[in-house]
Design a protein around this nucleic acid. Structure first.
Length: 1024
RNA sequence: GGACGGUUAGUUCAGCGGUUAGAAUGCCUCGUUUACACCGAGGAGGUCGUAGGUUCAAAUCCUACACCGUCCACCA
């Protein structure tokens, strides 16, 4: 570390050494602070940064704010714990690596295979993780590195599994269907934020399903209408009111449909025909509507974007071809009423721009509405809402409470499975049955003619006639998984025959009373090559009876229900044939547990009961001590994504809130007001800023001049300004610490011992101590309500304006024994107050005159007794006013600073006070060589005049009468304006009558003061 | 389409019922006094987006509108 007290503070000379000292001390870990047992705990979890990229200055703000809180609390005697970590950011990270892989080698993840691909991702993760942690450390963040966590590490994996299993066993997690975004080219699902919308023009077709259907609907995608099961209209729409509730059986271009007419207020009467064809399987909104109104779902389009089997001529066609064909058919039959061009948004894959097909698929969900015993018969949604409504959890700024509640209110079941590889693999296992084994769990696959022809050659095909297997002569019940039961030879292809066949086959195993029931209960999981589960499900489940004959169902295949035996557990169950679910969990599932998974949940709970006697477990160790954490500080954009999930999961796992306060900061935008993002490449690396201006300057610039929840622009000028402040503090300290005997020098030797007689205290000293004390209180108040910017501004204002510009200057000319103590005292106080804002310089300065470490010093408290003997308030404000008035008058009269002039002050009843401060008035850049202080006297013409309340000041010599006249006139004009405004206000009876007396009195005083000063100025002007 | 936020000095932003609306930066004038030119002293600069309303009192509360931004839903 540099030893000299350089003229300029060079952060690079100090920061690394100080950081090392901090780290070596071990005090970032509160266990090492050796605090008394009753020290209150205070914990913050660092919102784990995504490992997709290195940090930018937005993250630096997060660090600055949280470190401020932690350092502040630590100095205030709290057991302050700040837990570091990173987030694996599943989808985002996988995407980055996939893109890079493709760019560099032309390979996709499928080419590599799961294992090799994950190795690649991990390689990438390790590198960025290291970069990120290094950046955070550089910023001086006092995080407890011994508790470092990663959302995808072993301990967190344990927590995730435990949580999943517990939720599954409680019935909170379930498996269900949902419409997802599917890219037919990439053959994968897309997260909502991976869908891009592109403006385009599309043809909007308006038509009726059939001649006997009364309502026309509009669509840009007629092919999906093959899967319509309802038409929605607005309940207030007079045109359609009479149809609501009825069901129509229609023949839509050759495909039979059952259409129910439903009413939904979401339907706009003015758009199109005011009626909306509902396609549950292929539109998100329609899917939601189908859930709401319990509609049937018909799957029309498969994973390869062709029409599923079971739709006659259309089956196998590409969506676009089918559309043409359908439109053609509609046109021919005269059902097409209108064709128009409209502008709409095409959703497409962000990667390959292929249009997205929304298709239904099996996913894992968290049921947010299920009432849970352990939550007092409330659902997760209810308990999470209650948390904010009751004020258990507070939001800063408050407006985000509304946003949170609004989102919670509208929350649907949370889909937690993701079709990607990077992440926590879902701890669900499915058993593949041995094909030789007798069928216990089974399913059917159904085949149409085309596929049947392919299959026919395979040896497994067993032709069946009237429920009796041919070939090897086995009974139904003896079929094995994989056997194909051929119905082509069944003469009577009616439901009844098949039903009886099926019934026979399953006798003693499962029981269905009808095919309908069978279809309801079984699920067709296994995907036949080229076709998907969804395809077959579509065929099986929808209007089965009609289609069976219509499209020629040729065969069923018996399929072991391998995916039906679901076993949710931490480890693969014993026995052969178990495979784990291919999917991984939503990244927010693991980060949602962050407040307690970082505190070693579930290892940190053991069975037992609390004093309340209700709990199923007791918290131990860190979890008991620090959970719920104190405050969650993060960006407002992840309020719903992350914050709400943490609340939900904490209540579930621990029955308590994860934190008491939520503080949301805004984004740091670039210099042009654009959001910093990887793709734009406009992110600024905090390390670059630090290299140029130092960490403290960076931190200050991020803490000051911004308000919670609002975005702030990054500004180099602001950083530079803060760098200047850092340097100012450095130099203030340098002056105080290097000045061995800061004794009065006085401008005027004759002035002798200047101030305030023998007592030794001066007005300036009392004043600065009072100001300092005031600052301590103000900053405390601000910090505790998260008003960091205000606290910082007050600090700077005090240090620069009060302390440096006034007290320090005054101290140069005042002889006082006290100042040898007061100067260091105020400096120490400042360093402590400033430490959470600018830890490095303050520590560097502290080291110059202390052996201890500032980071763990006691924070100042209001009402220090150290200088209790000094008068509580001085008259220094008055002296300041006089000095400023003189400076101002001189400057306005263009009296060169070097020129000394004489002055006379008529101080009235303040004459003693002013006399006591004669030296200060002469010395503080007023350029006065000779000063007379009298109680009162004659007006002096030809002098520069200034008034401070009752006090009259005359500056003699060097007077430019013209300039003085102009100046006085200007001042008088200003005052007159002020006085007349006040006058008017006070003569307004309504104001005097209705406003609080206090306000009126203040105004009256103001008026009297202004009038007195105005009179004096006018007199003086007359003298000229 | 819905929700939220913003619109205040040349610029970046505070203030969000009651002293002549503040700060930083920039600008102008001046300045080598025992720390600091990354400094000191002084100054100019605002009808607080527009139009109404509530109030003794509005930048501040309400209502509309305009423009900018963010998030959500995506439109049959």
């Amino acid at each position: 570390m540099a030893q000299d007290f350089e003229k300029q503070y060079n952060p690079a000379d100090y920061e690394d050494a100080i950081n090392k000292e901090w780290l070596d001390s071990g005090f970032f870990n509160p266990d090492n602070l050796k605090l008394p047992d009753d020290a209150p705990p205070y914990a913050i979890v660092l919102p784990p940064p995504n490992i997709t990229d290195k940090l930018h200055v937005g993250h630096a703000m997060m660090i600055a704010i949280e470190d401020l809180l932690i350092r502040y609390k630590r100095m205030n005697g709290f057991c302050a714990l700040w837990i570091p970590g990173t987030d694996h950011a599943a989808i985002a990270t996988q995407n980055v690596v996939e893109k890079r892989l493709f760019k560099e080698t032309g390979q996709t993840r499928h080419d590599l295979g799961r294992e090799k691909f994950l190795a690649e991702v991990n390689k990438f993760a390790t590198v960025t993780q290291k970069t990120i942690l290094n950046q955070i450390k550089k910023m001086g963040a006092s995080l407890d590195w011994s508790r470092l966590a990663f959302t995808l590490d072993e301990q967190r994996g344990k927590a995730v599994k435990k949580m999943f299993i517990e939720m599954y066993n409680d019935g909170v997690i379930y498996r269900g269907e949902r419409v997802i975004n599917w890219c037919p080219r990439c053959k994968s699902t897309l997260a909502d934020d991976e869908v891009e919308y592109k403006e385009q023009t599309a043809k909007l077709y308006t038509f009726k399903y059939s001649k006997d259907f009364p309502i026309a609907i509009s669509t840009t995608r007629p092919e999906t209408k093959l899967g319509d099961t309802a038409v929605a209209v607005n309940p207030r729409d007079e045109r359609y009111k009479k149809y609501i509730g009825s069901t129509f059986e229609v023949d839509f271009v050759g495909v039979p449909l059952k259409i129910k007419i439903i009413a939904d207020i979401g339907v706009e009467m003015d758009f199109g025909t005011g009626a909306l064809g509902v396609t549950p399987a292929h539109l998100m909104v329609d899917y939601q509507m189908s859930q709401k109104y319990d509609l049937e779902m018909i799957k029309v389009i498969g994973e390869d974007a062709t029409i599923n089997p079971g739709f006659g001529d259309y089956s196998g066609l590409k969506a676009a071809q089918a559309r043409e064909k359908i439109v053609e058919r509609l046109r021919e039959s005269g059902l097409l009423e209108k064709e128009e061009e409209i502008a709409n948004n095409l959703s497409q894959c962000y990667r390959c721009e292929t249009p997205i097909e929304p298709i239904p698929s099996k996913q894992w969900f968290v049921d947010v509405d299920k009432k849970l015993k352990k939550l007092g018969d409330k659902s997760l949604k209810e308990i999470s809402l209650e948390a904010s409504k009751s004020g258990e959890i507070k939001f800063t700024p408050e407006r985000f409470q509304g946003q949170y509640e609004n989102w919670m209110n509208n929350l649907h079941d949370w889909c937690i499975s993701r079709q990607i590889w990077y992440g926590h693999r879902i701890p669900a296992f499915y058993q593949i049955k041995d094909k030789k084994e007798k069928i216990k769990n089974w399913d059917l696959k159904i085949y149409g003619e085309n596929i049947y022809q392919d299959l026919k050659n395979k040896s497994k095909t067993i032709e069946t006639r009237a429920g009796r297997a041919k070939g090897d002569g086995k009974d139904w019940a003896e079929f094995k998984v994989g056997d194909l039961i051929d119905f082509s030879l069944v003469e009577d292809k009616t439901e009844k025959v098949i039903e009886s066949g099926v019934k026979k086959k399953i006798s003693g195993i499962s029981h269905f009373s009808s095919i309908a029931e069978m279809l309801e209960k079984i699920s067709l999981e296994k995907i036949y090559p080229g076709k998907t589960e969804a395809d077959y499900r579509a065929l099986m489940e929808n209007n089965f009876k009609d289609r069976l004959e219509k499209f020629g169902i040729w065969a069923f295949e018996l399929v072991g229900l391998d995916e039906q035996i679901v076993y949710v557990s931490e480890n693969k169950p014993e026995g052969d044939g178990w495979i784990q679910d291919e999917d991984t969990l939503d990244t927010w599932f693991s980060s949602g547990m962050w407040t307690f998974s970082t505190l070693n949940w579930p290892d940190s709970v053991r069975p037992g009961r609390t004093s309340a006697g209700e709990a199923r477990f007791v918290k131990t160790g860190d979890l008991a001590k620090y959970h719920p954490t104190a405050v969650l500080e993060t960006g407002f954009e992840i309020l719903t994504l992350w914050v709400s999930r943490m609340i939900l999961m904490s209540y579930y796992a621990l029955g308590e809130k994860p934190f008491s306060d939520v503080y949301l900061h805004g984004n740091i935008l670039d210099e042009h007001g654009k959001k910093m993002s990887k793709s734009k490449g406009n992110g600024v690396d905090p390390l670059d800023v630090i290299a140029k201006y130092g960490t403290d300057a960076l931190r200050l610039s991020l803490l000051i001049g911004s308000t919670p929840g609002n975005n702030a622009r990054m500004s180099w000028e602001k950083i530079e300004a803060q760098r200047n402040f850092v340097n100012k503090l450095w130099n203030i300290s340098r002056y105080i610490l290097e000045n061995k005997s800061p004794l009065s020098r006085g401008v005027d030797a004759e002035g002798g011992r200047g101030v305030s007689g023998g007592a030794g205290e001066t007005g300036a000293e009392a004043w600065i101590l009072d100001r300092c004390n005031n600052l301590i209180g103000e900053m405390k108040k601000d910090i505790e309500v998260f008003a960091f910017s205000q606290a910082g501004e007050k600090l700077i204002d005090f240090v620069w304006n009060d302390f440096a510009d006034w007290y320090l200057e005054a101290s140069k000319f005042e002889e006082s024994e006290n100042k040898k103590e007061i100067l260091p005292y105020v400096l120490r106080t400042i360093l402590k107050l400033a430490h959470p804002f600018m830890p490095f310089v303050t520590e560097a300065i502290w080291k110059k005159f202390n052996d201890s470490m500032l980071m763990v010093e006691k924070y100042p408290v209001v009402g220090t007794q150290d200088f209790a003997f000094l008068p509580k308030s001085g008259n220094f404000e008055l002296i300041k006013d006089i000095v400023m008035a003189i400076r101002n008058a001189r400057a306005e009269n263009k009296v060169e600073p070097a020129r000394k002039i004489e002055a006379v002050i008529y101080a009235g009843d303040k004459v003693e006070i002013v006399k006591q401060n004669e030296i200060l008035i002469k010395s503080l850049k007023t350029g006065i060589s000779d000063l007379k202080i009298l109680e009162k006297g004659e007006k002096i013409s030809g002098a520069i005049y200034a008034a401070v309340g009752e006090i009259e000041i005359y500056l003699l010599g060097a007077v430019d009468a013209e300039k003085e006249k102009v100046r006085l006139e200007k001042e008088i004009a200003n005052l007159e304006k002020f006085v007349s405004a006040l006058d008017k206000k006070l003569s307004n009876q309504e104001f005097v009558g209705k406003a609080p007396e206090k306000v009126v009195n203040i105004e009256k005083e103001k008026l009297a003061k202004a009038e007195a000063e105005l009179a004096k100025l006018k007199e003086q002007l007359a003298e000229l």
